[in-house]
Design a protein around this nucleic acid. Structure first.
Ligand SMILES: [Zn+2]
Length: 292
DNA sequence: AATGCCGGGCA
DNA sequence: TGCCCGGCATT
């Protein structure tokens, strides 16, 4: 009987801690009791998605416009505007006056619509009121594609693509400015789930194999199921990124691991479902489940 | 403010 | 070795 308290104590302690971290007093017993989620879970996976698609609408409109103008434009990614970070960090934007010109990928002419006119704090352009919160049948899916010369990476969230650009391309670049925004572009697919037609260039990847796609799936699943062993519909082989690793043999000692480009357990499952985190995450170590 | 995780402590 | 957390870097 006394052992009981011994067991409970740490649990309670953790709950209190969690409550602190959560900034509110939820979960006062075991984490599993989780009906009071109510307003928790502000953002994750699906939310991200909606968030993204929210600010995508303007760009989507642009894409549509440009598309309708030239019915047979091979590459949709003719523009790339800078989207401020989603959510609240509004004023930040302060994008550097002149980002070092994109790695001469595409001709600077077809490049972004002169940033001077719009982008600034722009993005305030009104879009067509055609997708009112009522019918979501033709929900256009937006993906983010890397515009680095020979990289065709596509992800579902802008955070992902930014991380990708940052880690893969801007890795050993001196500029500490957040220029990731200039190396990717949003493209809009006209369908809901399957990745329909893009010129095959764009579809360099089966999409289902896109780690981010999967990740999103996982996130969504947990949102829906909210429980159970997440069975990731993973493709047979693991997706390794064989990076050329143009790094001279000079790794100091602990460059503090570049932030992976995907959400880890904590964010995916949320504080409320800590039990589902991988052990490493529970221990505040490097995630082993969504490792990069 | 939230996340991710290293370094270090404790049993 | 498993577990936990302070604190810092990064987002
Ligand atoms: Zn993890």
């Amino acid at each position: 009987m006394s052992s009981m308290s011994e067991i409970m104590e740490p649990v309670v302690a953790r709950c209190l801690k969690e409550a602190k971290e959560l900034g509110e007093s939820a979960c006062y017993n075991k984490p599993i009791c989780y009906f009071r989620s109510r307003k928790r879970r502000p953002s994750s996976s699906q939310d991200d998605c909606s968030k993204d698609s929210q600010m995508d609408e303007c760009s989507a409109a642009l894409v549509l416009m440009s598309l309708s103008c030239s019915p047979h434009s091979p590459n949709l990614n003719a523009f790339s505007y800078t989207s401020t970070s989603p959510g609240s960090s509004s004023s930040s934007a302060s994008y550097r006056s002149t980002p070092s010109p994109p790695p001469r990928a595409y001709s600077p002419q077809s490049a972004p619509l002169s940033s001077s006119s719009v982008s600034d704090e722009g993005i305030v352009m009104d879009y067509y009121p055609d997708d009112l919160p009522r019918k979501k049948k033709s929900v256009t899916r937006i993906v983010f594609q890397c515009t680095w010369p020979s990289c065709l990476k596509i992800t579902n969230t802008c955070e992902s693509i930014e991380a990708h650009v940052r880690n893969e391309h801007l890795k050993d670049q001196i500029c500490g400015d957040a220029e990731e925004e200039f190396y990717y572009t949003e493209i809009e697919l006209g369908y809901t789930s399957p990745p329909p037609t893009l010129s095959h260039r764009d579809m360099a990847r089966p999409f289902h194999e896109d780690p981010d796609y999967q990740r999103q799936l996982v996130g969504t699943m947990r949102q829906n199921l909210l429980m159970g062993p997440i069975s990731i519909p993973q493709s047979p082989h693991k997706i390794l990124k064989l990076s050329p690793r143009p790094h001279s043999p000079k790794m100091p000692v602990s460059p503090r691991r570049i932030r992976g480009e995907n959400k880890k357990c904590r964010k995916v499952y949320g504080m409320e479902h800590r039990e589902q985190w991988c052990t490493q995450c529970k221990w505040k170590k490097a995630c082993s489940r969504f490792g990069d």
